[in-house]
């Protein structure tokens, strides 16, 4: 009676059970690039973000939180690190060419947050897409997933 083995086996079975549906979802969404367990992140507008991609991946939440407190409490409204600015560049077009909302799994924020199982409540109050409805002219894609980039080896 080896409890450790039983426990490890159970754990492994559970992990596989939890993991496989997620893998299927991502594999379906990323069919353009091929099967991968990594999230596929829609390209944004312009050449680069307000900070390095690596920096943004690790610190975007801190930048947003910092900006949020300055804006709400002190009325400082520099665009650079604002959520509106994020959405302006990172809007993802849906089938109707309009930007999708956070309800759509192809939304820029959800690409990673779904993958990492980190739930955010920003969009319970904030608009999750640019106000104009249509995307800016220089937005470089029109389909649901025209340009995708893998987590590693982007740029």
């Amino acid at each position: 009676m080896n409890w450790r083995h039983i426990c490890i086996t159970l754990l492994a079975v559970m992990l596989i059970g939890i993991g496989s549906p997620g893998a299927v979802v991502f594999a379906e969404e990323g069919n353009a690039v091929g099967n991968s367990l990594l999230p596929f992140i829609p390209m944004g507008r312009g050449n680069a973000c307000v900070e390095d991609t690596d920096f943004m991946r690790r610190n975007h939440m801190e930048l947003l939180k910092h900006q949020r407190d300055e804006t709400v409490l002190e009325g400082t409204r520099s665009d650079q690190y604002s959520l509106t600015e994020c959405l302006d560049c990172h809007a993802v077009a849906g089938p109707d060419a309009n930007p999708v909302t956070f309800a759509d799994s192809s939304h820029f924020c959800r690409a990673c947050h779904d993958f990492a199982s980190v739930s955010i409540d920003c969009f319970q109050c904030h608009a999750s897409r640019p106000e104009s409805g249509a995307l800016p002219d220089d937005h470089q894609f029109s389909g649901a997933f025209p340009g995708t980039t893998r987590v590693k080896g982007s740029e």
């Binding site: 680069a48 900070e51 390095d52 409204r77 520099s78 665009d79 600015e85 302006d88």
Partner: peptide, 10 residues
């Protein structure tokens, strides 16, 4: 390089 400031014209 690689850092773009948006909307500084406000």
């Amino acid at each position: 390089p690689g850092v773009v400031l948006y909307g500084i014209s406000r």
